[in-house]
Design a protein around this nucleic acid. Structure first.
Lengths: 216, 216
DNA sequence: GTTGAAATTAGTACGAA
DNA sequence: TTCGTACTAATTTCAAC
């Protein structure tokens, strides 16, 4: 990988300081596992649960934090209890060469909880939390539609959030070993064993946006 | 929706104890605002930032926690640094009357970070984190496709996560007042003011799944 | 709901293994 | 590096106001 780009690194893409370094071992992983379940645990208790000394726990904890492996600690709030009972996904088609504007506008919409650029039919997916359905409608038709960078939207409501895991770790799945340096994206993965049925589809960016490619 | 659902309450839908009660006032909101940005802040510092005494902060903090408004504290981990560089969204069409099985299977897939039931063309959206593209492919074709409840899938890759906010609160947007008891979902919201352009689309469940309705 | 104490716990800074 | 200990600073609890 080159430097700041690469696939989903996370946040607002701050290129400034990247704590590149720090080889994560099993102990680091265990620390992360404990911390994502209980972000308020004391370092002393953490040390005990991981099976290391307090001093080591402090050292590693600080290293993980300084290196950016742990980005921050947050409280998970029940949005329904907090008054935002409706969640919706808005799939957005963005006008080419207006991405910067699109991002800028998005940053000014506090009701947006999540936004990701995707391959496929649409360009971006936005998740919003609102007090009611009418507010979603208002947001999409009035605020999103008025952004020049937004070419079209498609809105879908979330009926139930089946599961939300703080942060998935490699140790969770037997997904395979975590690579030392994650390959940016190898374009031609050999098909694993045998593919059972033809009921699934992968949508690449090129495919979905072929008709836009002359567009800036 | 049919049985246990209801609008996005949150987690795994544990119907057991719901700390229903506790009217959230402005101070509660401020506490939540601070806590979602810094989940490890001490209660003393929290009290200072909110502008109340320590004792009050402890009381309110405990109340929010006990009442389930704060569900948990968690560490945000940089998944790339942790070895999961690839994020994908899998849109799943679920065979009717097999939802329970679908949920059960999902619970056994640790690489799934998020799953929501949605209106629209598909029935559910799943977000997964994997070390590489091949793993996503393997997951979808081997593990997801082998679930009988899964009728079809459509996979999209996330190229960049533009923003991820810990938890949106009503005080963020001028979305309007938080309703006392959030209306479950009023099906016919009167259109707000005026609709500017015809470039957006709302996809309801019935519309997208009309062709499946005879399917159990 | 607030302030001000005491008791406990957390965080830091050493050496030693 | 990691561990163990001692020291300092902070937090939490509990009291009375």
């Amino acid at each position: 990988m080159t430097e700041m780009s690469g696939p989903p690194s996370s946040g607002t893409g701050v290129p400034g300081r990247i704590g590149i370094g720090l080889q994560l071992d099993a102990v680091h992983m265990k620390i992360l596992e404990v911390l994502r379940e209980n972000g308020r645990i004391s370092v002393a208790a953490l040390a005990e649960r991981v099976g290391i000394s307090r001093a080591s726990a402090y050292t590693r904890f600080e290293a993980l934090r300084a290196d950016g492996v742990i980005k921050r600690f947050t409280a998970e709030v029940d949005h329904v209890r907090a008054g935002l009972g409706i969640t919706a996904l808005v799939f957005v088609t963005v006008r080419q060469q207006m991405w910067k504007q699109f991002r800028a506008q998005l940053a000014q919409m506090p009701e947006v909880e999540y936004c990701a650029i995707t391959t496929g039919q649409h360009d971006a997916m936005i998740q919003v939390r609102m007090p009611d359905v009418a507010s979603v409608h208002a947001l999409v038709t009035e605020r999103l539609a008025s952004i020049p960078a937004v070419k079209a939207t498609e809105t879908v409501f979330i009926l139930d959030e089946v599961l939300k895991r703080p942060y998935v770790l490699p140790s969770d799945g037997r997904s395979r070993q975590a690579p030392r340096r994650p390959p940016a994206a190898d374009p031609a993965p050999q098909p694993p064993s045998n593919v059972p049925l033809g009921k699934m589809r992968f949508v690449g960016a090129a495919e979905g946006r072929a008709h836009l490619h002359k567009d800036t």
